[in-house]
Amino acid sequence: MRSPAFFLVSFAVGLVVFVLARMLDNDYLFFAGYTVLQYIVLATGWNILGGYTGYVNFGSAAFFALGAYSTVVLHKAFPMPIPVLMLVGGIVSGLVGFGMGYLTLRLRGAFFSIATLALAVVLQTLIVNWDFVGGSRGAYIIRPHHLEIFDYEIGYIQYLFFTMMVLAVLSLTVARMVERSRLGYGFATIRDDEVAAEACGVPTLKLKLIATTLCGALMGMAGAPFPYYIGYLQPSSAFGLEYAVNAIAMPMIGGATSWVGPLIGAVLLGTLQQVATVTISSAVNLLIVGLLLTGFVIIAPNGILGLFHKYFRGKTDFVGRRRIDRIGP
């Protein structure tokens, strides 16, 4: 299936979910669904860098928060519609991702990972000390109750859900497109062996920069509507540990070599956490994610997708013909 067709089909699936949720008319469903969709975007963004090229980004929370705080800044200056905010958040986080990559990607992979850990704390310190966006006290963003589109009233949370759904479909399409292109081949060679990749003519630094930029941009876009969703944005919630750990755990549990993995991981873990937060404490909830992550990386190297391949197709590895739809632009 070509990418535009894939986008339309996924969008149709998303639309069906949206309509069904509207028929149930339960705002909680939208609140919970929004979080799951947001995790699909985060996990997919993480996976383009981590799963495809093998560079681990521990700073997902930082990129997410950058998107969220871009919105806060804009909200104070001149309020804009959510899609524009997403675009701005994406550009800001994408640029920071590019900068991080440019500074550290010439070095060994571990340095990049450590630097992303550091980035989260530096940014949090900056935000805590920046009074314009509320500093450590946080910032209130008054969310409109509803939106009117052509005399048609729609609850604001439904609107947020809808935009995040479009973003999720978009990021899955991008991830799938990357995976099946020349770029995806290049990314995989970087994951396997960078020196050999260079010898084959793969411009590894350029490709890694593309991956960090894409990763940062998607995470920033996921964070942009967050202030409207949460209503009151504190540094500790924007830089929440759950984003950093889920962004890694979801692709690793779902299967990091394909766009399907983060989707599976995000839907399963995201839903599980929504249920667990209601029934048990959020700390236990995070503990489960941590244990699942550690357990999966030890026992199931290629996540749920890997298990699936092993049991249903008798393959232990993902080796086989890579799909490539089209070479070149």
Partner: peptide, 27 residues
């Protein structure tokens, strides 16, 4: 130093995608 997650044919395809096209000016 093969690319271990790719098949033999895919290993050979990498230079075709990244070097040969650059030189011939077309994909």
């Amino acid at each position: 130093r093969p690319f271990v997650t790719m098949s033999v044919a895919d290993n050979l395809r990498v230079p075709l995608l990244y070097t040969v096209h650059t030189r011939s000016g077309r994909h």
